[in-house]
Amino acid sequence: MRIGLQVPSFTFPGGEERIAPTFARIAREADQGGLHSLWVMDHFFQIGVVGPPEEPMLEGYSALAYAAALTERITLGTMVTGVTYRHPGLLVKTVTTLDALSGGRAWLGIGAAWNEEESRGLGVPFPPLAERFERLEETLLIARRMWDGNETPFEGRHYTLERPLNSPRSVRRPRPPILIGGAGEKKTLRFVAKYADACNLFDSEELPRKLDVLREHCEREGRDYGEIEKTSLAYFADGAPSVDQVIDAVGRLAERGVDHVIFSQGTGQDIAGTLSEAAVQTGSLVPAGR
């Protein structure tokens, strides 16, 4: 089992001037404590389940680049990038840059996008859902092509790339892992089976059935279900958890077929140390010198 941390809120004690030092401390503690992954949301406004839109929200890849310079082992990703936020070629360049500068620790976390409020607010196009899924599939094809070193032109319905050059290449080989967030059974999980290295599902009673659906898609695509890393986002609604609560959640999700649990920090919580202690007790630490 792998244990990760998501930081979804930057409303830290002390106000906005404390964002940088507090986030830096969390990243260092997660890294030095042997956690496997560190994630930020890729949003421009705060989302409603965490807080009002006016709360501070850092741009995801800038935040991860900052964290990369402060850490040595922990992997870094967005949970997850909305496909409409960035042109695919530029998104792949951004993730490749993060991978190159972090020594091979970047993820591409991606999904079909859902937050119309922030898109309209900042003037980002927000097409209908069917088109967003079309764009998601084209983006996945482009990412695979660029990380394979294939510079031949790409002509899709929504994107045209005359020369998808990607230099330097990623440090992680064959590429940074691709994680698709979402539980849609007809398209999202089919895209996971066809294009991705990992999925992300919420911790819910439906999780085992969603994994069964993913397994069925893998069978249809001729994909080994075991190759896909099953991640789950877990959140403690009643404040910061104890070490025992984290260990219980890890065990329960492992029984449901999850390989990698990502705990959301939540508003006002600081749980990196708790997760590190749980990782020690469950044998989930990332070894030094990985």
Rank of each mutant, 00 (worst) to 15 (best):
L136W: 06
G123C: 13
S170D: 02
L108H: 08
R120S: 12
V50G: 05
L189S: 02
E17P: 01
P125S: 04
G266P: 03
L101A: 08
I178A: 08
M146Y: 01
V124H: 04
A278T: 04
H36D: 03
A279D: 01
K230P: 03
R144W: 11
G289L: 12
P52T: 09
G181I: 11
A237S: 14
L91R: 05
A240H: 01
I178G: 09
F236Q: 05
F133Y: 13
P241C: 07
S9T: 15
P177Q: 03
A112K: 07
E17G: 11
F12Y: 15
L136V: 12
G289V: 09
T22D: 04
E72A: 14
G51Q: 06
L5D: 00
R145Q: 15
H158W: 13
A27L: 11
L189H: 03
F44A: 07
H36L: 02
D248A: 15
E117S: 15
V92D: 06
R220V: 15
S204I: 11
I271R: 07
A20W: 10
Y61I: 03
P177V: 12
L275W: 08
V7Q: 06
D99K: 05
T231Q: 11
R73A: 01
K186G: 00
F154Q: 02
L214P: 02
M79Y: 14
T267I: 01
M79N: 11
P56A: 10
S170A: 15
G51I: 04
M79R: 00
P56W: 12
G51F: 05
R2K: 15
L140K: 08
G103M: 05
T71K: 10
T267C: 00
V280L: 14
L161N: 05
R25I: 08
I74Q: 02
A196M: 04
A65L: 09
I262W: 05
A196E: 07
E137R: 14
E227M: 12
E155D: 00
F10Q: 04
N115L: 14
R172P: 00
I142P: 01
Y61F: 15
G34R: 07
S242N: 10
F10S: 08
R132V: 10
T160F: 14
L129H: 14
L165W: 12
T22Q: 05
V286M: 12
S204E: 13
P176Y: 09
L275K: 11
Q269E: 04
Y195P: 00
G123A: 06
L140E: 01
G111P: 07
G77W: 08
E54C: 12
E255K: 12
V7R: 06
D259T: 07
W107Y: 15
L90F: 14
G60D: 02
N115Q: 14
S170Y: 06
L136K: 04
I47P: 01
E185G: 03
L285H: 04
D224H: 10
V250T: 01
L101Q: 08
G156T: 10
L76F: 08
A237L: 10
Y66W: 14
R105K: 10
P8W: 09
L211W: 10
E255G: 14
